[in-house]
Amino acid sequence: DRYEFNINGVHFTIDDAEEELIKLIEELLKRGARAEEIEEVIRRWER
């Protein structure tokens, strides 16, 4: 599934997002994580 979200006006799209990654990102968003922090999480996840 495609997952899309915005952080401070920056648009992100993840194709074939796994449910666990989506939950992790949503938790980070609730905590007010910065875009750079979430980008790093996504990079690590994709390795």
Rank of each mutant, 00 (worst) to 15 (best):
D1A: 09
R2M: 10
R2L: 08
R2I: 10
Y3E: 02
Y3K: 04
Y3A: 02
E4I: 06
E4A: 03
E4N: 03
E4H: 08
E4V: 07
F5E: 02
F5V: 09
F5D: 02
F5G: 03
F5Y: 08
F5P: 02
F5H: 02
N6M: 12
N6V: 14
N6A: 11
N6E: 15
N6W: 15
I7P: 00
I7F: 06
I7Q: 04
N8L: 07
N8S: 11
N8K: 04
G9E: 09
V10C: 05
V10N: 08
V10Q: 12
H11Q: 14
H11D: 10
H11P: 09
F12H: 05
F12D: 01
F12Q: 02
T13G: 04
T13Y: 14
T13C: 10
T13I: 14
T13M: 12
T13L: 14
T13R: 09
T13E: 10
I14M: 05
I14R: 02
I14Q: 01
I14N: 01
D15C: 02
D15L: 11
D15I: 13
D15G: 07
D16T: 14
D16I: 13
A17R: 07
A17M: 06
A17N: 07
A17W: 05
E19K: 10
E19S: 10
E20L: 09
E20W: 06
E20I: 07
L21K: 01
I22T: 06
I22H: 03
I22E: 01
I22K: 08
I22F: 05
K23L: 13
K23A: 12
L24Q: 13
L24D: 07
L24A: 13
L24T: 14
I25D: 00
I25A: 00
I25L: 10
E26D: 10
E26L: 09
E26S: 09
E27M: 13
E27F: 12
E27L: 13
E27R: 10
L28T: 03
L28M: 13
L28K: 08
L28C: 05
L28Q: 07
L29W: 04
L29H: 04
L29M: 11
L29S: 05
L29V: 10
L29T: 07
L29Q: 06
K30R: 11
K30C: 06
K30D: 12
K30S: 12
K30A: 12
R31D: 11
R31C: 09
R31K: 15
G32H: 07
G32W: 02
A33S: 09
A33F: 04
A33C: 03
A33L: 04
A33D: 04
R34E: 14
R34V: 14
R34W: 05
A35W: 09
A35N: 07
E36F: 05
E36H: 07
E37G: 01
I38S: 00
I38R: 00
E39R: 09
E40P: 01
E40S: 03
E40I: 05
E40V: 04
E40T: 05
E40H: 03
V41N: 04
I42G: 00
I42A: 01
I42L: 04
I42E: 00
R43P: 00
R43L: 15
R44F: 15
R44T: 15
R44I: 14
R44P: 00
W45R: 00
W45H: 02
W45K: 00
W45T: 01
